[in-house]
Write a protein that binds this DNA or RNA. Sequence first.
DNA 1: ATAACATGTGTTAGTGGCTAACATTCAGGA
DNA 2: TCCTGAATGTTAGCCACTAACACATGTTAT
Lengths: 195, 195
Amino acid sequence: MTAAPNRREAKKAATRRSVQEHALRLFLAHGYDATTVEQIATAAGVSHMTFFRHFPTKESVVDTDDYDPMLAELIRTRPATEDPVTAIHHAATTGLAAILPADREALLIRSRLILETPALRARQADNEHATRVLLADALTARAGLAAPSFTLEVLAAASLAALTTAVTTWTRRGGDADLVALVNEAFRVLHEAPR
Amino acid sequence: MTAAPNRREAKKAATRRSVQEHALRLFLAHGYDATTVEQIATAAGVSHMTFFRHFPTKESVVDTDDYDPMLAELIRTRPATEDPVTAIHHAATTGLAAILPADREALLIRSRLILETPALRARQADNEHATRVLLADALTARAGLAAPSFTLEVLAAASLAALTTAVTTWTRRGGDADLVALVNEAFRVLHEAPR
DNA sequence: ATAACATGTGTTAGTGGCTAACATTCAGGA
DNA sequence: TCCTGAATGTTAGCCACTAACACATGTTAT
């Protein structure tokens, strides 16, 4: 059986996936805090060291998402004539359209856990900090500036706040609502706020 | 010597203050992560249990602020004719004017530590979550509504984002800039964003 | 004043997240 | 087939944090 030349990588990826699945399952069943890393590792048939080699922290099993680079890329390719908030808005809806069909359920489960668990909320909030910087940088690059201006930082922060509010509301409603519609609504509010 | 009937409370408050001061001093000197709770407790001449009786977590020594209730109260008393964002804006500047004269230095030190330390950033970000809810509720009460609308939630989130951006920028500039002016600028951006 | 009580603190013995050091196994190339 | 290196296991330990119980010191009532 001449295995594909990546049997090792495959095994590693399988282990990682297994750990993550068991973790989410146990979190949902018994709660995040009541589930120990040791239990997750045992359930997945590995040692706790393997857990930490795949996930730097217990929290990271839940709130790692890899959407940031895509979002940044989408922003950079928006036409220069668009104002910054609209650029983020359209980049977000485009990205969501690409993500939702496959990731909807996973996104919802993770969002729910994050909303319910203080430790995860905190970590997620710090992730948002990184996303904020990323958004500001993307806007900066799109505008051809060297360094982000205060204005772009405020707009990036406000846009991300609108986006997050939409996702939060969607999650609280059990994922029944149309997420893209909520995002559109949030940005409409942002645009019309001052009037 | 019939002591005032609060010698106990006074001692407790003194212990608390001592612990907090030693903590901030050690954090500044050696960094947050490199300072253990045991070291802080020893420096303050108490046991680590006393530390945790005064501060529920190591993080809370740094990022506990008691400004939220004041801010909420200031929002509720803004005239009903003001739009939500402006109400938050004016409440914030009023509050800052009251706080800054006395707390400027402490605020700056704490902000700097928070910006530099991932664990503190995460916790602070979760505090912001609470503040966001508080702002939305205050706007809701002011508008005479029963439950916060999606619109008010977005506006509260965006306003807080603007406010936080101003404080962050102020901190990064070493506190040299005029914080109130930065806040005004941030809200001006928010108002003019869509045009 | 003295007894009774309440409360802030210390001691001790844990649990759980997380890391370092070293041993082991096993896939893939020479 | 042997050899290298990557993935994992084992062990021991640090640190944040908690529970249980003991102690001592203000406070209050008698």
